[in-house]
Amino acid sequence: MIEIENVIKVYRMGKVEVRALQGVSLAIKPGEMVAIMGPSGSGKSTMMNVIGCLDAPTSGRYILEGQEVGRLGDDRLAEIRNRKIGFVFQTYNLLPRLTALGNVEVPLLYGNGRDRRRRALEALERVGLGPRAHHRPAELSGGEQQRVGIARALVKDPSILMADEPTGNLDSRSSYEIIGILQRLNREEGLTVVMVTHEPDIAAHTRRVVSMRDGRLVSDEPVREPRDALAQSVGKEGTAP
């Protein structure tokens, strides 16, 4: 359960104050799949960082699973990220030196990390990359790299998966694959997925779309009939999203 109440986030860029979030309130229930949309500069990335506990709000309250996390220090936030949040990035952010398996093991290095190898392999198998476990990112396609990224996000069994433009660097086929995996995780395993995207087509695969502009929420609507990525990637292969 994510509860954000009247969150304000102000950055200082030199002498200029940037008001990235100007009083946002949002609640996301467990098992939801939410897309946060908006043009660049709308504050959706800041929103993502706050929800993902990468950054603390300047004011307002953020309660994650009943725990007030808005006022925690860096190291406590790191602990929460490690235990409760999985990140999937637009640019994958894999460590090039490590194999797929090594990359998936990274979150297990911090905090409780027993059975690293086995757990990392399981996570890779969940995204269908078991056979590619010992390849380095440079030897994998974009879609495969992103699947490694998802496996890494899953390996600690988080309660929330945060995806920042997860299909931004992918072709349409790989995009549907990735969205398909996220949908499956959400439907079959009840994982809460929060995704930032500016592509309406990708957002149409979620069950709720939140739109932002100038640091405020402008709309918050459920998706009547979420599209099924799996059907699309099989049926309309190669078409642009």
């Binding site: 860096d74 190291d75 602990e79 990220r81 952010n93 979150p107 911090y110």
Partner: peptide, 16 residues
């Protein structure tokens, strides 16, 4: 720097 960012996002503390 990026590696440090990734590790921190994955839960690495300052001490780590």
């Amino acid at each position: 720097t990026r590696e440090i960012g990734i590790r921190k996002a994955m839960g690495a503390k300052r001490r780590d």
